[in-house]
Simulated scan of single mutants.
Amino acid sequence: MSASSGPEFPQRALDWLSGGRAGAGDRVLTLGCAPGFCRMLSRRGVDLFAIHREPEIAARCNQMPATTGICALAESLPLDPCSVDAVLIHQSFDRMAPGLVLSEIARVLRPSHCVGVSWMTRDGSVPWVRRLTALLRSVDPSAMSGDYGTDSVDSLLSSKYFPTTEQSRHRIWVPVSRQGLVEMATSLPGIRRADEQQRTELVQRVEQLHDDSAGPGGLLLPYQLECWRAWVSHDELTASIQVDDAGLRIRL
C-alpha cells in the first residue's frame, strides 16, 4: 500500500547503501530496479548502468541522462570484472537466484566496494495504521499482509563473497489526505470484491479513522526503509580476476 504521492528515497540512505559511491562520476550498476529509482541516480550525475530483464523498462532507463539501459539477466552480467563502484538493488533482490547473482556482483565490483540491497515497506507499528489494518481485515482477512521479500537477504548475509555486512533502517513519513486514504483502502483486491454495502460501510469507517487520527498538519503514512550493504571479497572467486589495463593489442 502506498500513498498517493509515494515515499521518496532519502538521499542519506542512498549514500549509506552505496558506501559513498553514488555521486558525480561514480560508476553505478542497478539490478532490476524501477525507472524511478534509476532516475534518482541519474540526477546525481553518476555513470549509470541499469540492468533489467524487461526490455521496456531497460529502454525507458536508456533515455535518462548518463544512463545505459541494458536488457539482461542479473545472474549473467554483460560487464567487465572490477568495472563498477557500487551495485544497488531496490525491491527486487528476492526475484534473483542467489547462487548465481552474488558471484556475478562480486565479479563486477571493484575491490573494497559494496552492494546495497533495500526494501521500502509499510510500517505497521504506528497505532493508527494498526487500526486501519484491523478495519480492512474485517472485510478482507488478507489485507495489508504479505511477504515483502526481505527474507531473501539472508543469502547475502551468509555469502562467502561478502563477508562484511551492515544494516540500517529509516522511517519515512508521507502525507495522505482523507480521499487518498479511502482510495488506498478501496483499491485492495479483496476490498474491491466485497459487496456494495460492505464497501460503503468500510469507506465511512476509514474516513472516520482519518478524521480521528489526523493532527494539525494532516495524517502521515509511515514507511520503513530497510537497507543492507555488503563489502566484496574477491578471495573466494573460483578464478582470480586480472584486469589488463593495456587492453587488447592486434598486430597488423
Results as ranks from 00 to 15, higher is better:
68 T>Q: 15
68 T>L: 14
68 T>A: 14
69 G>A: 11
69 G>K: 08
69 G>L: 10
71 C>V: 13
71 C>H: 01
71 C>F: 12
71 C>I: 04
72 A>W: 05
72 A>H: 06
72 A>V: 03
72 A>F: 03
73 L>G: 03
73 L>K: 04
74 A>I: 00
75 E>Q: 14
75 E>I: 06
76 S>C: 10
76 S>I: 00
76 S>V: 00
77 L>Y: 11
77 L>F: 01
77 L>W: 02
79 L>S: 02
80 D>M: 09
80 D>N: 08
80 D>G: 10
80 D>Q: 13
81 P>A: 14
81 P>W: 07
81 P>G: 12
82 C>W: 12
82 C>N: 14
82 C>P: 03
84 V>D: 01
84 V>G: 03
85 D>F: 09
85 D>M: 07
85 D>A: 07
85 D>E: 13
86 A>K: 03
87 V>Q: 06
87 V>A: 08
88 L>I: 04
88 L>Q: 02
89 I>S: 01
89 I>N: 01
89 I>E: 04
90 H>D: 02
91 Q>C: 10
91 Q>V: 09
94 D>M: 05
94 D>R: 01
94 D>Y: 02
95 R>N: 00
95 R>D: 03
96 M>I: 08
96 M>R: 03
97 A>E: 09
99 G>P: 05
99 G>E: 10
100 L>K: 15
101 V>G: 02
